[in-house]
Design a protein around this nucleic acid. Sequence first.
DNA 1: GCGACAG
DNA 2: ATCTTGTCGC
Length: 213
Amino acid sequence: MFVASKAVALQRELGRFALIQPLELDRVEIVAGLDVGYRKSLGYAVALAYDVRNQREVCWVAVSSEVEIPYVPGLLAFREAPLMVAALKELVEQCTEIDVVMVNGHGLAHPRRAGIATHIGLALDMPSIGIAKKKLFGDLVEENGRVAIYVEKQKVGYVVEYRGAKTFVTVGHRVDPDTALELALRIWREGARFPEPIELADKVSKKVAKELG
DNA sequence: GCGACAG
DNA sequence: ATCTTGTCGC
């Protein structure tokens, strides 16, 4: 069964292994977007591959399962990461290898440096970036025309604002704040709420959850 | 006690 | 996140 206190203890340990380091964007060809849509307690995780150079969707896969763990702020990873990882593995088997993964949720902007994007990056030992619509944890600091988000004096990401709508781009694992932001902006349609991989995975997961049962 | 609280 | 269509406004 799920014990919140145990989950919290595990995150304190996990967070210590997250790496903030530069990532060579010239070598990033495919970015995967991960999101989960629901119909009642049935979750549908979608993993979608996006080609950075050609600015286009490559393919996507969806996997579903009954989701038993409740949503608790700070513990989202225990509820959604298992399905997301299953979807990502399916994507790699059925379609293509990927270089970076973007996850709907936060990365290091978390009370224990262990948001869902960090959990997934560490689990797969791969660069990961969190993309979220609302703040969970951290301090917002204005820096030359931009808003950065800090956790314990350490910069972990940025806020992208467009016509009042904010989107948080945070480090998950094996990437740094500036590189994460630059990559996200390279694949962000003008006026869209999220970078394309997440924008598309979000729409597909909702549609799949609605059409199937 | 009060405010905050990813999806 | 999800339950849910149309409608008011730029």
